[in-house]
């Protein structure tokens, strides 16, 4: 991933960051706040507080990564913008790199340990 793409990644780049969770949830289609909370809890096991959720929504919308899809009573569904989709792809690629590298290293460490045990 290019530095330019990486620098756009959400604050810590962690998989449980509210912005990452919201972008991931919206990748499946538009959702309003309540649906986002339920979906995030379902796929990530993370229960976001309402203040945390709307704080992240505000920042994502400010950066043009998501947008409101129009009024829907007192709730507004949000959807991913093209920039949001690009950012999510870059974030997931970065996380995938870390997961792959971590898995490879753990596997190698296990092999070395088993070789040491045999010796």
């Amino acid at each position: 991933m290019s530095p330019s793409a990486r620098s756009k990644v959400a604050p810590s780049g962690r998989s449980n960051d509210p912005p990452v969770l919201i972008l991931t949830s919206l990748a499946a289609g538009p959702k309003h706040g309540h649906a986002l909370l339920l979906d995030i809890e379902a796929f990530a096991g993370v229960r976001l507080g309402p203040g945390t959720l709307y704080g992240a929504i505000g920042r994502l919308e400010e950066r043009g990564l998501i947008e409101a899809a129009g009024p829907d009573g007192r709730t507004r569904p949000y959807l991913l913008t093209t920039s949001g989709r690009d950012l999510l792809e870059a974030t997931l690629a970065e996380l995938r790199t870390i997961v792959d590298e971590g898995t490879r290293r753990l596997s190698r460490a296990s092999q070395l340990a088993s070789l040491g045990g045999e010796a």
Binding site: G33, H34, L37, G49, P50, G51, L53, Y54, I57, R74
Partner: peptide
């Protein structure tokens, strides 16, 4: 965002999902 946040909290209340942490 005030109306949306209020609506979300109301929905959470309807579902008995409100805790002291809110």
């Amino acid at each position: 965002y005030g109306d949306e946040l209020a609506a979300l909290i109301a929905q959470m209340g309807d579902e008995q999902r409100l805790t002291w942490r809110i």
